[in-house]
């Protein structure tokens, strides 16, 4: 039985209180909302914060704002169940709705939040193990060690970005609002992610994800497909989010984003550029998928065989685009 390490807990009542607490405590502090990622990690001693700042009572983070036809703002502490069950999202931002519905289990979606999923710790077969297992191996560079067991000569960590909502929201063109005690900034959601398994978020110390902003959905059609061993519980071992702006069957603009093939969500830009101006047909879908698959270069550090994951990348893009074609 793994026990939680010692920590203090502050249930913040306002965003200001949360940001001040996180700003003053420094690297020993962590924000927690649902706790579904952080608490198991703490049990495995992958993270050992001394102070947890609870965000679930912070009203500013629960907001869902927008008007029909306009952009839509989603607070970081909306639960994944709330995201998945929202009718407007199901209609206009299908990829995000499907992605939220595909996370973990019903109970975990009732607890876990959008912000928590966007900031999900990167995962790896050599890292997501209890402390005794990792100690027996001699630890890895992501925590307590110096080597990457996936690529031992590599100077970097290759742990995998395994969240479902980020590829979907990036495909939908989301921006993310970040807040800290010293102010706010807004960046493209794709710029929140860095290609490094250890420092996988570009958050500054003391900074929080406050929420995301989705642009108007008019004309856009999107979907999300997730590959995993079981139909529930599991993290993705490959996922594809695709969003197309269509004008009478012709693609005006496209975004295709892979999840779980690297330390950050990977955009298939070449495929997206190819699709621009193309009519969506079986042939153009095939070519787009071939180009897209070049961006998916997974390593052998998740469930599922590596060569199979590489092959399925192209097929999964085909299926996602076919789904959009069928409407």
């Amino acid at each position: 039985m793994m026990r939680l390490p010692k920590f203090r807990y502050l249930g913040a009542k306002s965003l200001k209180e949360a940001l001040q607490a996180l700003g003053s405590v420094g690297p020993e502090g962590r924000a927690v909302a649902g706790g579904t990622d952080l608490l198991p990690n703490m049990k495995r001693r992958q993270q050992q914060p001394k102070l947890l700042v609870g965000l679930r009572q912070v009203p500013e983070l629960q907001s869902l704002s927008g008007e029909s036809g306009g952009s839509l703002g989603l607070g970081a502490c909306l639960t994944l169940s709330e995201i998945a069950g929202n009718a407007a999202l199901q209609d206009d931002y299908a990829a995000l709705s499907l992605a939220a519905r595909a996370v973990a289990t019903p109970a975990l979606r009732n607890m876990g939040t959008l912000g928590g999923n966007l900031c999900l710790d990167t995962r790896c077969n050599y890292y997501c193990q209890d402390q005794e297992w990792r100690e027996a191996l001699g630890y890895c560079m992501k925590k307590d060690g110096s080597i990457c067991w996936v690529a031992p000569s590599s100077p970097r960590c290759w742990a995998v970005s395994s969240c479902d909502t980020a590829p979907a929201a990036i495909a939908l063109g989301a921006r993310v609002r970040l807040a800290s005690a010293s102010g706010r900034r807004e960046i493209d959601l794709s710029d929140l992610y860095l290609d490094d398994g250890i420092r996988y978020l570009s958050l500054e110390p003391g900074e929080l994800v406050e929420g995301i902003l989705l642009p108007p959905a008019q004309g856009w059609v999107s979907t999300y497909r997730k590959i995993r061993r079981r139909g529930s519980i599991d993290f993705p071992i490959l996922s594809v989010a695709a969003a197309l702006k269509l004008d009478g069957g012709v693609v005006e603009k496209a975004r295709i984003v892979f999840g779980a093939v690297g330390s950050r969500p990977k955009q298939a830009k070449e495929a997206a550029a190819f699709l621009g101006g193309e009519r969506l047909t079986a042939e153009s879908i095939e070519e787009a998928a071939r180009l897209a698959a070049k961006a998916a270069r997974p390593l052998d550090n998740t469930d599922g065989g590596l060569s199979w994951r590489k092959r399925i990348a192209q097929a999964t893009v085909v299926r996602a685009l076919e789904e959009i074609l069928r409407g």
Binding site: P40, K43, A107, N110, I233
Partner: peptide
């Protein structure tokens, strides 16, 4: 104890949650 198995499921405000991951 990690939220995977659901044996500890309880209702909080009517929603099913894993009580092993609630502080």
């Amino acid at each position: 104890g990690e939220g995977e198995c659901g044996a500890c499921t309880v209702l909080i405000d009517g929603e099913a949650v894993n009580s092993c991951l609630v502080i």
